[in-house]
Design a binder for these strands. Structure first.
Length: 235
DNA sequence: TTGTGATCATCT
DNA sequence: AGATGATCACAA
């Protein structure tokens, strides 16, 4: 089995959903083996393993393009590491920030809004105590933000994009934003990219990206999988 | 080098 | 414990 094999891209949301459903209940080890891959013992040196494996399995386009994972469908794929109760353990990266452009864009045209317009969330067991190969894949959810979700995300985005657009990026910390936050997104803390200072002069700053807080994705899963007072974990 | 996929590991 | 800031691997 060639290690570069990959599922063909799905022709419809229905097909994408069916494929995701077929993966639910299986383990990452089984899925990796079906592509001739070996799951790493842990993710310390393979942080993108789960996401990239899922891309192969569902037929997402490869590579690092600034497009949705399924361009024809306009769907973004996100794996979600969850604890035994089905709660996301990590924030979700949305997109990198172009400090010199963000001030010229309205929410409606923002990359954050476009990326989150349609998302296939795939919960996967994320406990470090479980070897990667034994972690189970959960029930996926094809999601779009509700009007309320979008209004809240827009509020956060406008505050953060406003600061960046006014050259105050370095005043931003991960504390800002109820659901959406800005955090470093770089190879290391010495990374720098072109930006503007508060006077509008060119300067260099740490590359940052937008992230969804785990509380936001937790709410999404809860809203869609909660059938009663006892939640049914999507695993 | 930048953007994709994210999780790690330290600090509060 | 939970979240923030830091970091890892790979492709183009």
């Amino acid at each position: 089995m060639p290690t570069r094999s990959r599922a063909r891209s799905p022709g419809s949301e229905h097909e994408l959903r069916a494929r995701a459903e077929a993966l639910a209940g299986g383990t990452l080890g089984e899925l990796a083996a079906s592509f001739g891959l070996l799951a790493p013992p842990d993710l310390r040196r393979a942080k993108g393993f789960v996401g990239e494996l899922m891309e192969r399995a569902l037929g997402a386009s490869a590579g690092s393009r600034a497009e949705p994972d399924f361009p024809e469908l306009g769907v973004e794929l996100k794996t979600l590491p969850v604890d035994p109760s089905g709660k996301p353990q990590e924030s979700t990266f949305v997109c990198t920030i172009a400090p010199r452009e963000i001030g010229d864009v309205e929410w409606e045209a923002s990359l954050v809004r476009r990326k989150l317009a349609r998302v296939l969330w795939v919960p996967v067991e994320g406990m470090r105590s479980v070897p990667v190969a034994q972690r189970r894949i959960g029930t996926a959810l094809l999601w779009s933000p509700s009007p309320e979700d979008e209004a809240e995300l827009r509020f956060d985005w406008e505050q953060l994009a406003g600061l960046i657009g006014r050259g105050q990026e370095d005043a931003i910390t991960g504390h800002l934003g109820k659901w959406l936050q800005v955090r470093p997104k770089a190879a290391h803390s010495r990374s720098r990219r072109r930006s503007f200072d508060p006077e509008g002069s060119p300067t260099l700053s740490l590359p940052r990206g937008f992230y969804l807080r785990a509380t936001f994705t937790a709410r999404i899963l809860q809203q869609h999988f909660a059938l009663g007072p006892r939640r049914q974990p999507p695993l």
